[in-house]
Amino acid sequence: MSKEYYITSSCTISNNSIHKNGVLLFEEKGKELNNFLISAYKNMGLNYPKFYKMDNLSRLGWLGTELLLKDSFNKDSYRPEETGIVLSNRNSSFDTDTRYFETTRAIPSPALFVYTLPNIVIGEISIRHNFKGEHAFFIFEDFDAAFIQEYVEGLLNNSILEACICGWVEVLGNEYKAFLLLVEKKGSMAFTTENIHKIYYQNNG
């Protein structure tokens, strides 16, 4: 029998603004994605030099997760194997794939090559927080709240995980959106498809 799980935190990065739990944390209009993400990183007082080396997909997912978890997640409550990550997007790592391809005309860039897979963003998040739980990255035409809800619930139901970060992290050029949820076994907002939709469309569509 299915148990009830809860959305304990949410973070959305889109249209040059960052919302956490529906509250605007940071906004800087008119900047390209690359500069916006660096500006947000500095503004939030984060200190993780590897951030600068990441591609935009990893920066977006890493920054979103950082803010999703900040003051909302007690890492000590879970073993590393108990927190998982399930993400999705439309264009995989195509943004970086094309930039890497350009470098192959001269000398290919190793630093770009390492980001030519979408699940690298999960690796960056896992390294930062020492997560070792189940993880997956799915490619969909559009964000599929029902699939994410069902898949994550399955992982939690089968006691594979105790907590899960899930959502959508998409980048192609200057078109982007990160939508991240933290799901745990205690909370107040039920982890339902309806609630996921509600939060997804809450901040800047």
Binding site: I107, P110, A111
Partner: peptide, 17 residues
């Protein structure tokens, strides 16, 4: 400076370029 293995590859590219 805390560089990693990917940075080492980039330094090789730098020498070449």
């Amino acid at each position: 400076l805390g560089l990693d293995s990917i940075d080492a590859l980039e330094l090789i590219v730098l020498l070449q370029q």
